[in-house]
Write a protein that binds this DNA or RNA. Structure first.
Lengths: 130, 130
DNA sequence: CTAACTGTAATATATCACATAGTACACCTT
DNA sequence: AAGGTGTACTATGTGATATATTACAGTTAG
C-alpha cells in the first residue's frame, strides 16, 4: 500500500516530487517512525513509473536520513532527525533569503509572509505545536 | 560597469545565479529603478560567460518585469512590481510550505525560523521597513 | 530447499536543459 | 558610416531525467 498521495506536475523531476510527498507525509504523521515503507517495485507499479526512478527516490530518502534499509526486507521510516549546522545555514541563510528577496521584489509585506508561515506551520500538523 | 556581485557555485545554472544576484541588488537598492543595466555583451565579457547565457539572463528578467528594454539602446531597471494572485499563491502555498516541511523534518522550531526571517528581512535593506 | 520477495547495480536508449561557439539582422545613437 | 543595442538562429557537447531490461545477493515464508 502507498501511504502518501501525489499529483504530478510538469517540469519537476518525478523522483523529486515523490521525495517531497514522502517528507510531507512523514512531517504530518501520515507516515510514522517504524512504519514499513513501500518497496521499489511497489512504488513503480502503483505510481506507474520506472523501477529505476523509484529506486532513486529511496536512495535519496536514505541519504537524507528519512528511511532505513533492512537488507532483504525493505525500508522503514526513521525517527525525525536534527539539523546539522550546515543544514541550518542552508535554510537560514540561503533558502529564507531567497524567499525574502522574492517577497520584496513583489512588494509583499513581512506581516503577510509571517502570516503565511503561521498558517503553513499548523496546516500539516493538526496539533499546532511550536 | 557591472552593478552586482556574484560568486558562482557548482550545480546551479549560471543564468539562474545571475538572475538572483540582480534581484538581490534591486531589492537592496544597489540597483534602482531607471538605472541603466549592463548590455548582453558587457555581461558576457565581464562575467566571462557566453553571450547566449547573458541574453538568457536578460530575457528572464524582462519576463519577470524587473527590466525594460529600450530597443537599440539597452535595458533599464523597472519599478518594483506587485504580486499577482498566482504569484502570491505560489509563494504562500508552495514555497513557504516546502520550507516549513524541511524545518519540521529537521526539528527546527517555528521560533527559530521566524527569527531567521526577521534577520533576513532587515539584512538586505538597511532601513528595516515592514 | 525453493519460491518470492527485498535493495542494488549495470547496460542501453531517448529526451531535455544548460552552456558554449559563431553568425546574422533590425534598431538606435553619435 | 561606425559602433553600440537586443534578438534569432544553427550547431556542438555535457549532464540530468526517465525509460526498458537484466542480473545478483540477502531475507522470509511455504
Amino acid at each position: 500500500m502507498i501511504n502518501f498521495t501525489i499529483k504530478f506536475q510538469y517540469g519537476i523531476p518525478l523522483y523529486e516530487q515523490i521525495v517531497y510527498a514522502v517528507k510531507k507525509a512523514i512531517v504530518s504523521e501520515q507516515l510514522k517512525p517504524g512504519d514499513q515503507f513501500p518497496s521499489v517495485r511497489e512504488i513503480a507499479r502503483e505510481l506507474r513509473i520506472n523501477p529505476n526512478t523509484a529506486q532513486k527516490v529511496i536512495a535519496h530518502l536514505v541519504r537524507e536520513g528519512l528511511l532505513e534499509i533492512k537488507p532483504g526486507i525493505g525500508s522503514v521510516v526513521s525517527e525525525l532527525g536534527i539539523a546539522t549546522n550546515a543544514q541550518r545555514d542552508k535554510i537560514f541563510k540561503d533558502e529564507v533569503e531567497k524567499l525574502v528577496v522574492e517577497c520584496k521584489r513583489l512588494s509583499i509585506t513581512k506581516k503577510e509572509f509571517i502570516d503565511a508561515v503561521n498558517r503553513n506551520w499548523k496546516l500539516d500538523n493538526e496539533k499546532g505545536e511550536e
